[in-house]
Design a protein around this nucleic acid. Structure first.
Length: 339
DNA sequence: CGCTATGATTTACA
DNA sequence: TGTAAATCATAGCG
């Protein structure tokens, strides 16, 4: 890094950064004897280079032209070439081939997975699809939450892309600016294409570190959003009444063996607009809670048993099976093996 | 605010 | 692997 900053300074020192030293007098030295005159000339040139940024643009332009036409300029150029020859070894020594930053890769992968940096919203990213599956698919209940989530995600994505674009543009602008500057300076001092390339690399590295910050904060925002909207445990919603009734109906009408098969679970899931996993959860909870306190559920059991009995009676006009509505809890828990 | 209901998760087991 | 049981964490109610 030391070398980088040195390079930066050596590159920008002449053209960009103002030079604090050397007061602007003593530039117009009057030539004395020959030796002295040459020294004076060199001092003159250096002085002009150092103070060039202090001038107004027009002035600087004129001075630059004067410098380029100065009779000592080729000599100065050669001297600079020589100096460079001596130092270039140390520059060439540190050819750090930057490896892809693992953290940046992690962030990239994450953003891609969350559908922020991926292709445009083609029917929702993998994450959105997974989220939809996780919290119950097309439930009318949570569809609003999903659209809310998606809207927020889109918002994040838009901000991310705008910022990214802005950075990229700024980076390009700055790069071309610096390259122009270097190209301009290369008339006065030796600058190899490799140096320009290095410079560009340095700029890009700086900008990508800024980009990484953007990516990081975007990731954070997405994570917060996810935890807010998609962690079903945190944002638990009770099933709607209809779903609960369907589940309870099944439970109490199969009280002797309330273990729905996979197919039955799928059916229930579809009817209730929840996932199969949620059906399983519900039955697991229901079984254990029923078993723990049958008394508490007695009323409920009677109610649902009566309802199913009525339904059965209505469905089959002739009561082929002797149902006894007066004792509705006879759903068949006699000797229930699961209790 | 405290309490219960409830959906989800975790752990252990056969 | 599906379930029981315990536990977590929030919803919802008075």
């Amino acid at each position: 890094m030391d070398e980088q900053t040195r390079l930066m300074h050596s590159h920008t020192g002449v053209g960009m950064a103002g030079h604090p030293g050397l007061p602007p007098h003593m530039q117009e030295g009057t030539g004395g004897p020959d030796g002295d005159g040459r020294k004076q000339d060199i001092g003159d040139i250096l002085q002009q280079i150092m103070t060039i940024t202090d001038q107004s643009l027009d002035e600087a332009q004129a001075r630059k032209h004067a410098l380029n036409c100065h009779r000592m300029k080729p000599a100065l150029f050669n001297v600079l070439c020589e100096i460079k020859e001596k130092t270039v070894l140390s520059i060439r020594g540190a050819q750090e081939e930057e490896p892809p930053d693992p953290q940046l890769m992690r962030l990239d992968n994450m953003l891609l997975a969350e559908g922020v940096s991926g292709p445009e919203k083609g029917g929702g990213s993998a994450a959105a699809a997974a989220a939809a599956a996780a919290s119950g698919g097309v439930g009318a209940d949570n569809s609003t939450e999903h659209s809310d989530y998606r809207a927020k995600l889109t918002q994040i994505r838009q901000i991310y892309h705008t910022e990214l674009e802005k950075y990229e543009q700024a980076c390009n602008e700055f790069t071309t600016h610096v390259m122009n500057l270097l190209r301009e300076q290369s008339r006065t001092r030796p600058i190899s294409p490799k140096e320009i390339e290095r410079m560009v690399n340095i700029i890009h590295r700086k900008f990508s570190s800024i980009q990484m910050q953007l990516k990081q904060s975007t990731c954070e925002a997405v994570m917060i959003l996810r935890s807010r909207f998609l962690d079903a445990r945190r944002k638990r919603r009770n099933f709607n009444k209809q779903a609960t009734e369907i589940l309870n109906e099944y439970f109490y009408s199969h009280l002797s063996n309330p273990y729905p098969s996979e197919e039955a679970k799928e059916e229930l899931a579809k009817k209730c607009a929840i996932t199969v996993a949620q059906v399983s959860n519900w039955f697991g909870n229901k079984r254990i809670r029923y078993k723990k306190n049958i008394g508490k559920f007695q009323e409920e059991a009677n109610m649902y048993a009566a309802r199913t009995a009525v339904n059965a009676a209505n469905a089959s006009s002739h009561g082929s099976q002797a149902n006894s509505p007066s004792t509705p809890n006879s759903a068949g828990e006699t000797g229930s093996p699961w209790l």
